[in-house]
Design a protein around this nucleic acid. Sequence first.
DNA 1: GTCTATAATACGATAGAC
DNA 2: GTCTATCGTATTATAGAC
Lengths: 188, 188
Amino acid sequence: MSDSRRKIVEAASRLLEEQGYHATGLSQIVEESGAPKGSLYYYFPDGKREISETALRETGQRVESNIRQILGSASSAAKGVQTLIETIGRRMEASNYQAGGPITTVALETAPDSKRLNRACQEIYNDWRVALRNRIVEDGVGGDRADRLAGTVLASIEGAMVLARTHQDRGPLEEAATSMTELIKAAH
Amino acid sequence: MSDSRRKIVEAASRLLEEQGYHATGLSQIVEESGAPKGSLYYYFPDGKREISETALRETGQRVESNIRQILGSASSAAKGVQTLIETIGRRMEASNYQAGGPITTVALETAPDSKRLNRACQEIYNDWRVALRNRIVEDGVGGDRADRLAGTVLASIEGAMVLARTHQDRGPLEEAATSMTELIKAAH
DNA sequence: GTCTATAATACGATAGAC
DNA sequence: GTCTATCGTATTATAGAC
């Protein structure tokens, strides 16, 4: 992938997380990426939606990789989820709560009116969910229950990020970490 | 409160939930409200932000009232939370997932750049959380633990709404309902 | 691959009449 | 209380040169 294209996608990923879809302009993406202004529609003929989809999917894969790595090196699913949520809390705090969930805002904004971006968000959330589910199954929890637990953990993380960003406080994530480890342990 | 003002606030509440802050234009609010176009800046001299704050706070109180009513008429906190989440699921499904969390999208969009709207969202979330906490305390759960449980329930609901809207499926809310009742029951 | 210029449209907000 | 007209400034996207 060319350098300009890569820089555009990286800038878009960050801006979409921090500001959401509608508040992020193409001019700002180009400006902050440092890429040439003329290359935007050369690399992304379909414009903003194509850039955003590319950025979302790249973010999704990066996050999924982080999830798998953290869960994989933990001694149990419960420990892994706790470490995962703590890591998210540190990341949000370090960004002064400008990071607001890698795709949450865009997922909410575009669910009704962009089939393309909505599908991307669906697939990304599904990948994350599967990663969580697999680690819980490895711990010996039955498939159906592991599935439900993975969904609850994912929802709790998403919601706790919303609250943490709103309050500029990672407390909600810490509460979620405690509750989710408790819930997973109780499933055995 | 005058009729035009009330209609503007009602339309704004609905549009902000369905579309978020940046995607909702003043012209659309006026148009769908049926209020006279000239009355917008008469009732809300500070413009879009003032309309939005008013709409958010009104929505917040309406939802808080619903929460208290549902929790209050339930035989236990766990049952109440289950009924609450099921009610939310039916509401989202009935709207074809256009309802996307009464304030979630706006909370995420405006957290960084509008002190005024951010504070409103903080206070609304806090009210909801207190309503949850109080009902859990009534069930005999200790204050600290009830506080954490309320935070987790709120986060799970917020996150499950994000996932439900994204997938156009109330499954995430059903999973959250099951898990949250389990978690609350385990606290006794 | 990259540039500039510009089309076409929408936005929030204000002024001043009535 | 309500109206219209308008200002200034964004936006996405395209055309055509280089």
